[in-house]
Design a protein around this nucleic acid. Structure first.
Lengths: 233, 233
DNA sequence: AATAATAAATGTAATTATTACATTTATTAT
DNA sequence: ATAATAAATGTAATAATTACATTTATTATT
């Protein structure tokens, strides 16, 4: 067995072995709605059910690399924001094998570039409040990921991974409203956000959703000093 | 091989397998100093070096149960606060095997009950700023755990897992000072802490560290509503 | 050309939280 | 009685958060 050949110390041999997978909770925001990328599962058991996308971790990669590999396969994108959520290791979580999963959540900008690729993989962007039942413990993973996203959004300017390069203040407010799942006061929201000084205003207006038009902003990466950013929702 | 017998689906068979371990970052506070429990490693490679305590995850337990099993073995305690930190899965992290580790951090009260047991396992409580070099990526785990502890302390009343049932305000202030690694103003610290309303004052004084004596408090679990606790250090 | 409709942009006062800062108090040992 | 020690306490200034309603820029319609 290939595995055994690599062993250098007898103490490690014959230990109980588990399969190690990663599953990706992929969030996207299409300028209006926070969505999640889900897939038609292509393997037994539960073939045909909705599922997060995952893969086993290979011996020559770490868990983050495994997640990045999956993301690239599906969206064609590299350099996506991705962070570990937590591991799921219940004994019975997967009826097919004793398999733990290291869940990773990713934030991507939904745009036309990756729509095609995504379709090829039997994938679908679901609005978070219309999410179907997913296999195994994947619904729990999504729930946990959303909570983590909320935590993260409270303490760092998270939205920029999800927004296009140029975005309007109403757009980012909508995003935060969806993350926190409540309406925010636009005066207070803008005051807080602008006081943090990491938004650069342009003179261009986006008139796609109002007659007056809303100014486009971009994120000023130089100013993203973690200066006590606490967003109280 | 025992592993193969348990497989139900051919698709899972012959996948690359990794060993899965847990390592425990065990914090303790002896009323003065924040400490970490480290061990003389009993296995090759690196036998005799300082190390966190760990174990492989067994097929009939989840990662949390594995951590709890280790903690009970060593301290004799059950119901210890323990939470997942993150996984460590670098390809080369362990020269002995392709092994990922799910790091868990635990908070315990150092007291005489468990001192004996701890000694039996070649364990030693090190002050955090005198920590020796540990094997593998264990120093990194400690660093990450301390950061997580700090994060956690900012947003929830963490200290009570580390403090004895009855403790004084100077004691808890010292603990927070060690977690945040800076001096805190006692007037502001007490004001903030008491305003959160989850401390119950007793009329008993602890005179072990001053002539005047400091009142003992206990944690009021009923009032631990997560009411916007943000401790700005 | 005037008007209606729409969403974007804006300000202020009241409340609450945070910070900076020094003295008094209770007790024990001398 | 006094000295020594650490614990306990208050206040004023500043900053952050909240609650709340009107005006503005533009396009489409008449």
């Amino acid at each position: 067995m290939e595995f055994a050949k690599n062993q250098q110390n007898s103490w490690y041999e014959n230990k109980e072995q588990l399969l190690v997978a990663v599953d990706c909770i992929i969030f996207g925001f299409d300028k209006e709605i926070l969505k999640l990328l889900v897939f038609k599962r292509e393997i037994q058991p539960l073939k045909g059910s909705w599922s997060l996308i995952g893969s086993f971790v290979r011996r020559n990669e770490n868990s983050n690399q495994a997640g990045m590999r999956i993301l690239k396969d599906i969206t064609g994108l590299e350099n996506i924001f991705m962070d570990e959520l937590k591991t799921y290791s219940e004994v019975d979580r997967d009826p097919g094998a004793r398999c733990i999963s290291i869940a990773q959540y990713a934030l991507i900008r939904i745009d036309d570039n990756n729509k095609e690729l995504v379709n090829k993989h039997g994938a679908f962007w679901y609005s978070l409040d219309e999410l179907p039942e997913l296999v195994l413990d994947h619904n729990q993973m999504v729930k946990d990921a959303l909570e983590k996203l909320r935590e993260k959004a409270r303490f760092s300017p998270i939205g920029f991974e999800l927004l296009p390069k140029y975005f309007t203040l109403p757009q980012i407010q909508t995003l935060y409203e969806q993350i926190f799942q409540k309406k925010l006061d636009s005066r207070n929201f803008r005051k807080k956000l602008l006081s943090l000084n990491f938004l650069k205003k342009t003179e261009i207006k986006d008139k796609s959703s109002s007659k007056k038009g809303a100014y486009l902003y971009e994120f000023d990466y130089e100013k993203e000093t973690d200066q006590n950013f606490i967003f109280k929702g």
